[in-house]
Design a protein around this nucleic acid. Structure first.
Lengths: 249, 249
DNA sequence: CCATTTATGCCACTGAGTGGCACAAGCCTG
DNA sequence: CAGGCTTGTGCCACTCAGTGGCATAAATGG
């Protein structure tokens, strides 16, 4: 923090101005999560939040599109990273022209399923995002908050939907498909979403129900990653599940 | 409309007061769809809409929970019906204890998959809802509106999510599953949702792009039903789709 | 040190959504 | 066809999210 401290081994050292922006953004997110968690999403006004962070409301809206947006930022970040990861993988695929060796994360047999390609991109995104200091804690708070805040659910679903839409454009540019209306990649994308949401819910439920967990009580992203894998694997079972009536007892 | 006209073969004749309510509701929906379609969702204020229908804003909110809600009402009605249909089918299933003959809509081999059970419930719901006079026209307007109105998308997704949640409770009460956290029924429910959304999009796209279609230009619900079947059938292909890179050219 | 860009603050404004209360219209008695 | 009772509606004032415009302050680059 001292002005004279030289950055030990920083990459290209981000332009000083950018730092402040990121710092305000992070502060907004953190105080928002704290306040919302403590007193409920609906009971905290933006004016309060802004006063707390000492930022004008106008400025808040230059960082986030809505009150819900700031509360969901940690979760949204994953999806942004996912989009990037997937784009990179698709480029690699097109370059080598071979699905099998383009993606090193799988020592698989034959060309990969799109769903698995997406899953791996998501896992990589998770890994990258979670590299940030205590992302998991924030993500947990974010998700817990969403569980009891309908408008956050709506906002989150919509965000995912938009991301899926963007991803679909990438896919249609990079893969051989049955025309621009082929529903299969969309289905795959939405299934991944389902799986991810379930993984997140399970992850959150497994952690202690502490409303403001200490850093130590927060489950790590490895557990989440494992749950994502499980969930994706379970998708096919969901499709094939037969309806066995329960005996009334 | 004449007071003395005797209802020819009306069932029990709904309590006169209820009629007015339904009429106001329908008027609100129709004028909302018209105004929104003509001038855009965001450019019509609730005050305008209410003035047009000659109803106070306070009253509006006794019928609908939000501005988005009224614009999506036709689509929401299907899901409400779906919930009812599914509940009925589950009851039938539990009563007979046999999946095969409980549901007459399918002359299938062996017990039915949950997905197909849900699909049939949705188709039945569609059928029932579309019995109302020009539901299809309204639904089409509703969907077209949603396509260019982000907040409507968010609201619609959230509504479906809630419905799915309610349905899951029914399922866990009626079916043999792997405990309360078994993700399979949830996956099935969300896949049906995906399929339905795709069907709706295709249906809407196939109809002429007329912003205010004449009744004759509106596709019927049979076409939508067919698309739902197709989409559900295509789900498995989405799951299994292999990522074949497109040759750059 | 100055000029340009870029982030922020301030202020006034729209419009969705809510709560409270008084009023009127349908509705069940006798 | 009173009477009270229930239920839906109108009106009013209020909160608060979100936006636009313009002046100002801070970083950047010469």
């Amino acid at each position: 923090m001292t002005p004279a401290s030289r950055t030990p081994a920083a990459p290209p050292a981000p332009p000083l101005r950018e730092r402040k922006k990121q710092r305000t953004r992070q502060t907004l997110i953190d105080t928002a999560l704290t306040l919302f968690t403590r007193r409920g999403f609906g009971s905290v006004t933006l004016d309060e939040l802004c006063a707390e962070v000492e930022v004008s409301k106008r400025t808040f809206f230059r960082y986030f599109t809505s009150k819900e947006d700031v509360a969901l930022a940690p979760l949204h970040d994953v999806w942004r990273a996912y989009q990037g990861e997937l784009a990179a993988r698709l480029d690699a695929l097109r370059a080598t022209g071979d699905a099998a060796d383009a993606v090193r994360t799988t020592g698989s047999d034959g060309p990969q399923t799109l769903l698995h390609l997406m899953r791996d991109a998501l896992l990589a995104a998770l890994d990258r995002t979670a590299a940030d200091t205590d992302w998991t804690r924030r993500a947990l708070l974010s998700h817990r908050l969403a569980e009891r805040t309908p408008s956050m659910v709506a906002h989150g679903l919509h965000f995912c939907e938009r991301t899926t839409g963007d991803v679909l454009e990438l896919l249609h540019g990079a893969l051989v498909l049955d025309g621009p209306d082929d529903p299969r990649p969309r289905f795959a994308g939405e299934m991944l979403l389902s799986a991810h949401r379930h993984a997140l819910a399970t992850w959150s439920a497994r952690a202690g129900a502490d409303p403001e967990p200490a850093p130590a009580d927060v489950p790590d992203e490895a557990q989440l990653a494992a749950l994502v894998r499980e969930s994706v694997a379970a998708l096919a079972d969901g499709l094939a599940l037969t309806a066995t009536p329960r005996r009334t007892g």
